[in-house]
Structure formats: structure tokens, C-alpha cells
Design a protein around this nucleic acid. Structure first.
Lengths: 154, 154
DNA sequence: TGCACATCTGCAGAACTCTTCATACGTCAA
DNA sequence: TTGACGTATGAAGAGTTCTGCAGATGTGCA
């Protein structure tokens, strides 16, 4: 996720509608289906929004962070319990939570020296919920998959 | 996404239900709320599934790939048109598509020397659709956000 | 057959991410 | 006040990812 800092420079040029088709016509790239390209471009969200969205997905793209978020689906937990659930060190847990906090995906409640984290982003909650549901659904269809990562990957 | 190759070693130890609470009790980590931890652990998908899910999110976590997928929401496009839409070089586009293809997120149809790609994963399509919808929804509420990345990040 | 074209791939450099170690901070109990 | 504890942070190193370049592959046309 290098994106956060780059948003500004990317944002300026490509607005939602204006300049999108014009820029393409002027470009030296040959197009096979210019009409489709233009219509796709019209539908394409602004660069900054794509980057923001990718940021969110990227946050969910780490197994540890994802476990953290799954753990938080049911309610708040303190750092050490989160570390126990995910199997991470407390330092790594804290770093991960810091990132999630920076993106307002989780929020903290402090009680004495404890810090209780909770999921604080409805969209992310929905995505995690969906993902877990999809996992269970897939398991129901392909229960043999457990422990048999069949991906070829290349 | 280093995860794919690591699945096997991670999978062996942590099954879905069995051994999850037992392992925790034996662990030297102190728990604040062992009951919650146990129940969260019971609900936690198997490690391999978490990794698979994170892989998918990770695929969506790159702005370029995400644009590629948004472009494919409406139907198939050839590589050069995809490159034009996303503003990537054709080489980078091909690399990205290769990755997506390896994870069966997109599929190819070859016609002569052209390669037409299409979105081939219903779950991913839903996620991308949701993300775009959410983007537009957020835009409607916070139109001022354009070009003003307000994240503090730390 | 030979050339142009669309795409693919291996490689290497640059950039980024994640973890650990060490340490700092704020809170609580004695 | 002191020491223990839970958490937070900075720095550094290992590992991973992404891009462009150069060249390879396969197809179509003259």
C-alpha cells in the first residue's frame, strides 16, 4: 500500500468524466474497440477513488490483518487477546492495528492500561462478513480442499 | 501475496475446530477474556481459507489491477484496450493479467493474435461491483473529498 | 518464406511491506 | 515513588511485489 501518499499526484490529472475520452484519442496507443474503451472510461471511478478502494482491499489482503478483523466481527477485544487469536506477536499485532486505525477501519477504547479495539467501518465489516460467508459456502461445496492447496499459481 | 506457497506449512497445525482452544490454554500468552477468545477461535475459518481469502483481497488491493477488473465488469476487452483504459504499459498489463489469470479471476479467449480477457469469478465480480457502488455512494455524501486525501496515516 | 503485429515471459532494479528487536510511554499497585 | 505491566513506536533487515526492458512466441498477410 504505497498508495496513500501518492493520491495527490494521481488525482489531479484524471477527473471522472472530462478529458477521459479526449486523452485517449490523442494518445498514440492503438485501440481495437474505441467505443467500448470510451464507455468503460466513462464508467471508471476517479483515480483517487480507485486508489482509496484498492487501499481498503489491500488492508484486507494480509492474512494476519484479515484474521484480526474476523476476530473483531463479534465485538471488541484487547491487544493481547487479539495477538493470541491471530498467533502474532503483540508487537506485530500492535503495528497491524496501528495501520488499521490509521485508515479508520478499527477504533480504540482505552481502559486503564488496556486498549480495546473494535471494527469501526461498516463497509469493511460487510466485506469481511461476505468473505467469511463465501469461505464457508465454498467449504460446503469443496470440503476436501482443507489442507490441500491446489493452486498452481503460475 | 507471498501466501500461496506458505499455505501448506500453516495449514497443518490449526484445524477449524479441534485443538484451537486447547492450544491456547497451553500457550504461555496471558489472556484477558479467555471465553471470548475461545469463541472467536471457534468461529475463525481455517488458516488456509483465511489465506485464500486474503489472496483474493490482495489481488484487488492494487489500483491498476482493480482498474483492470472494473474495466472488465461490462464484458471482455483485449490487452491493448485494457492497457489504454488503465494507462498502464502493455507489458505491465500483461503481467497483471497473468497474475489474475493464475488465480482464475479472469479468463482468456484467443482470437487470432488477439487475447480477449473477461472477468471469470463471480465472487470477485461482486466485490468489485460493491466497491464501485460504495465509491459512488461515498462520493455522493462527500463530494468534497476529490483531490483531498484527508488521511493522517499515522 | 519473411515481416509485422499482439501478446507473453524472464530478468533485474527499485520500491514497498512485514516482522522483530529494543525501547518508550502511560497506568496501576504496593 | 518504584517497579511491573499492557501497549505503542522507531529502526533495520529479510522478503516480496511491481515495472520496464529485451527478447521469445505465435498468428496473419503479402
Amino acid at each position: 500500500m504505497k498508495s496513500s501518499a501518492d493520491v495527490q499526484e494521481l488525482t489531479g490529472a484524471v477527473g471522472r468524466g472530462e478529458s477521459s475520452t479526449a486523452a485517449l484519442d490523442a494518445c498514440n496507443v492503438r485501440l481495437v474497440d474505441p467505443e467500448r474503451v470510451a464507455s468503460v472510461n466513462a464508467r471508471m471511478p476517479a483515480e483517487a477513488d480507485v486508489v482509496d478502494t484498492a487501499d481498503v482491499f489491500s488492508l484486507l489482503g494480509d492474512p494476519r490483518r484479515l484474521k484480526l478483523l474476523v476476530a473483531l466481527l463479534d465485538g471488541e477485544l484487547c491487544v493481547c487477546d487479539l495477538a493470541a487469536v491471530t498467533g502474532m506477536s503483540e508487537s506485530a499485532t500492535s503495528h497491524a492495528l496501528r495501520l488499521l486505525r490509521a485508515h479508520r477501519v478499527v477504533a480504540v477504547r482505552r481502559d486503564g492500561r488496556m486498549a480495546y479495539y473494535r471494527l469501526d467501518d461498516a463497509h469493511v465489516r460487510m466485506l469481511v462478513d461476505l468473505a467469511v460467508a463465501h469461505t464457508e459456502h465454498t467449504d460446503a461445496i469443496h470440503p476436501e480442499r482443507h489442507g490441500h492447496p491446489e493452486r498452481s499459481d503460475a
